[in-house]
């Protein structure tokens, strides 16, 4: 199949999956007990106040008609309105999205290059003490829950040698310059974690490629090892690692609940935890959809990039 056609097919599929998930998510959130009004009124909820609140906010409409309204708004780029926070969902999410992008970006910049280099190094020097040390470190870092890494980093960097602020005490809409010092601790925690994942997949991929016949063939032809790595191993070994990096990047944007809670970082992860405990249904819905979109988009991108990077695909050999 030709690449353009393939990409188009995947894109349509991705959109279909997203639409199906959006509807499912809406119905799922609907089915959960409790709604925005019970959460808004809290200790002061009386049956009369609840009824009035539900009436005012249109929560008494049938589910399907609300689903229609919601989907229609969504198509126009309107994410809905948060009753609990009395603000449009888009306005609530925007500054936090920026903060999450900043955090994910810094973490990725710290982790990805290091991981690729060390992964290659460890693959080429398999069996040496240093390579094993790198592998073991990776395994340990992957194994530790993020709140453990976070607590240790906080203790060392914020209390013992106080060089970084331990928790964020800034509003979500602080300027990037203001928020930058607070990004480091959560970013380093995340970087250590994703570093291990990317490094290990890079290493595995290089190891697997190195033993492929075409690489051996190049060696037998007398090509220098350095050139073998650059011209033959890397092009074939990179696509799987790019795949992992895409998934990792998606996770950095949408899966960082624990780290954001620990460091009080004003990103999407903490917002999601708050929204869930607030029962802010419209916000939960928007955040879940965002997570889905990022994930679907990342697998679409990684699929496309993999195809473009893969020499066999480019050569029209199919894969």
């Amino acid at each position: 199949m030709n690449t353009a056609l393939h990409v188009l097919r995947r894109a349509l599929l991705a959109i279909g999956v997203f639409a199906a998930m959006a509807v499912l998510t809406f119905l799922g959130v609907e089915a959960l007990p409790g709604d925005a009004c019970t959460s808004l009124l809290g200790r002061a909820a009386t049956p009369e106040k609840l009824a009035q609140c539900r009436e005012e906010n249109g929560l008494n409409e049938p589910v399907l008609s609300r689903l229609g309204d919601w989907a229609g708004d969504l198509l126009h780029g309107d994410l809905g309105y948060s009753i609990k926070r009395s603000a449009p969902v888009g306005e609530i999410i925007a500054p936090r999205l920026r903060n999450s992008l900043l955090l994910a970006g810094v973490a990725a910049l710290l982790a990805f290059p290091t991981a690729v280099v060390l992964g290659m190094y460890s693959a080429r020097r398999r069996g040496t003490k240093r390579a094993r040390a790198i592998d073991t470190t990776g395994l340990v870092l992957m194994t530790l829950p993020e709140f453990v890494t976070a607590s240790v980093l906080w203790l060392v960097l914020s209390i013992w040698l106080p060089i970084l602020p331990g928790v964020t005490v800034l509003p979500s809409n602080a300027t990037i310059a203001e928020i930058m010092p607070s990004v480091w601790l959560p970013a380093i925690t995340l970087a250590l974690l994703v570093f291990a994942h990317v490094m290990r997949s890079m290493r595995a991929s290089v190891v697997a490629t190195s033993s492929r016949p075409f690489v051996d063939a190049a060696r037998y032809r007398g090509v220098q090892e350095r050139t073998v790595m650059r011209r033959h191993v890397m092009p074939a070994a990179l696509p799987p690692a790019v795949n992992v990096m895409a998934v990792t990047a998606a996770w950095l944007l949408t899966g960082t609940f624990v780290v954001e809670v620990v460091f009080n970082y004003p990103g999407l992860g903490r917002l999601a935890v708050d929204a869930i405990s607030d029962r802010d249904t419209s916000l939960i819905l928007a955040l879940t959809l965002f997570g889905l979109a990022v994930f679907i988009l990342s697998s679409f991108i990684s699929d496309t990039v993999t195809r473009m990077l893969d020499p066999r695909v480019r050569a029209g050999l199919g894969a």
């Binding site: 906080w154 209390i159 106080p162 602020p165 331990g166 928790v167 005490v169 809670v261 460091f263 009080n264």
Partner: peptide, 10 residues
């Protein structure tokens, strides 16, 4: 986090 913020002078 709040006690950490006080301990860290924030």
């Amino acid at each position: 986090s709040a006690t950490q913020a006080l301990a860290g002078g924030q």
